[in-house]
Amino acid sequence: MNIFRLLGDLSHILAIIILLLKIWKTRSCAGISGKSQILFATVYTMRYLDLVTTYISAYNTFMKVIFIATSYATVFLIYVKCKATYDHNHDTFRIEFLILPTLVLALLINHEFTIMEVLWTFSIYLESVAILPQLFLVSKTGEAESITSHYLFALGSYRGLYLLNWLYRFYAEDHYDLIAIIAGLVQTVLYCDFFYLYITKVLKGKKLQLPA
C-alpha cells in the first residue's frame, strides 16, 4: 500500500458516498445514469469474486464488500426507491455496445484463460468505459448539477491516482500489470474533457454547462 493507492481508494469511496447521499437526501436521481451504475455493480461483482477464494488483507476484504454493497444500493435507489425521478428519457446509451466488446476483448486478451481471470479482466475493461452512459447523459442534457460534477471528479481522480500508484509500484516494487495500466489510462483519458470543465467552471462556482 502506498499513498497514491490509498488516496485513490479514498477518492473512489468518496465518489460513491457523494452519489448515495445526493440521491438519499434529495430523494432524486435526476441527472444520474442508472445504466452507468448497473455497469459499476457488474464490474465489482465480476472483479471481487475472489472474495470467496483469496484472502489479501482485512482492508482489501472490507473495501470490496463496501464497493459491492454500495453499488447495489445505488442501483436499488435509482430503479426502485426513486424511480419516479429517474431520467430514463435521457439515459439512452446502449450498454450492450460496451458489455459485448469488453467481454470479447477479455476472452482474447487476458493473463490466463480461466473463468476467474477472464471475469477479472472483463471487469477491468468494462470499468474503463462504464462512465460513458453518464457522460452521454450529461452531454444530452447539456448540464450537470454541482453535486454530480463533484461525484464525477472524485470518480475520475480515483483512476488517475491509481496511475501514479502503478508508476510507483513499477519502480519501487518491480511490479506491473499491463492490462490494468492500459485500461486505467483509457479510463482516465475519458474524464479529461470533464476535468477541464470542472476546473474551469465548477470550481469557480458556476454550474457545469456544456458549450452550445
Binding site: 481508494d9 472483479r47 475472489d50 464497493f67 477479472w120
Partner: peptide
Amino acid sequence: QKLQAPHDEL
C-alpha cells in the same frame, strides 16, 4: 512480468 495473481488491488 510478475503476474498479479492474486490481484491485490481494488
